[in-house]
Computed example of a mutant assay.
Amino acid sequence: MSEYSIQQFIEQTKQDESENDYFELETPRILEVNLMDQVWAKAGSMISYNGEIKFEREGILEHGVGRLFKKAMTGEGSALMKASGRGRLYLADQGKKITVFDLDGESITVNGNDLLAFEPSVEWDIKLMKKVAGMVSGGLFNVTLNGSGRVAVTSHYEPLTLLVKPGESVITDPHATVAWSGHLEPEFRTDISFKTLLGRGSGESIQMEFKGEGFVIVQPFEEGHVSSE
C-alpha cells in the first residue's frame, strides 16, 4: 500500500473543480453529475452531494400505469430516484466500474442491475424477460434507453464488447451480460449438456443468443452468483 502525507493524499484524490460536464467520471467508479435541473439515478446510489438537491423515489404514476405494472413485476431492483436542483452529485454502485455513453438518436438496452443514471432527455422503458423469470433466481429485467443524452452503466471490472454479425450469433451467460444494441432481441435457450459439463449452479444452463448486427457488452463476473472458490 502506498504511503502519503495527508496533504499528498488530498491532492491525489480530491475532486476536480475544473470539470463541468453534465456527467464526469471523477474516478473509474464514482460518477459526478453537475446537476442543473434533474437526473434519474438508481435508488440508493448517492454517496455525496453539495448544493441544493432534493431526492425523490420514482412516483407511483410518474411514468404511467404500464410501467408501474412492469416495475411491480420486476421488483425493487428497478427502483429509480429523481434528483432535482443545482449542485454536484456523486453516484456509485458497490464499487462497480462506470462507463458513460452519449446517445445521439441511438438505442441501448441495459440489464436493470447495471443502470446507474441517465439524463431526463433520454426516453426509457422496462422490458421483462418473461421466458426466464422463473428460471433465474430473482428473474431478469432490462431497461431500453433511446434518444439523445448521457447514460451511465456499471460493470464488475472491465467490460468487453462483442460484435454481433449476420450469420455469427453471440451467446452469453445472462448473469454476465451488461448491455446490448437496443434493436437486438435476445433469444433464450437451455443447454443441459453445457450445464453438466461445467457442473455449476442451476442458472448456468440458460444462455442468451444474439443474432443480427450490433454489439453485446459482457463483464467478467456473474451477477447473482456467489462463487465458492
Rank of each mutant, 00 (worst) to 15 (best):
Y90M: 03
A72R: 15
A133Y: 14
D21H: 06
T144L: 08
V153I: 14
I53Q: 00
H175A: 11
T144D: 05
K211N: 04
G203T: 02
I217K: 01
G214P: 02
G149K: 04
G85V: 01
V178M: 03
V143M: 00
S48E: 15
Y49P: 06
S181E: 00
I53A: 03
E52I: 07
A92M: 00
D102F: 06
D191H: 07
M1S: 13
E3Q: 12
P166C: 11
L91N: 07
E24Y: 14
E158W: 11
G87L: 07
E3H: 13
E17L: 06
I206G: 00
G95E: 02
V170S: 01
V226L: 14
G75C: 14
D125C: 07
E11V: 06
E204Y: 13
G201Q: 04
H63D: 05
Q7S: 14
R200H: 15
T177H: 02
E52L: 11
G87M: 09
I10E: 06
R57G: 11
S193T: 13
K54N: 12
K70L: 14
L68S: 08
S18E: 07
K71V: 03
V33S: 01
L116G: 09
P174L: 00
L145H: 02
H175K: 07
G44L: 12
K96D: 10
L25V: 07
L162A: 09
R67W: 12
G199M: 08
S227V: 11
E158D: 15
E3N: 15
I6C: 06
D173H: 04
G212C: 04
S107P: 10
Q94S: 15
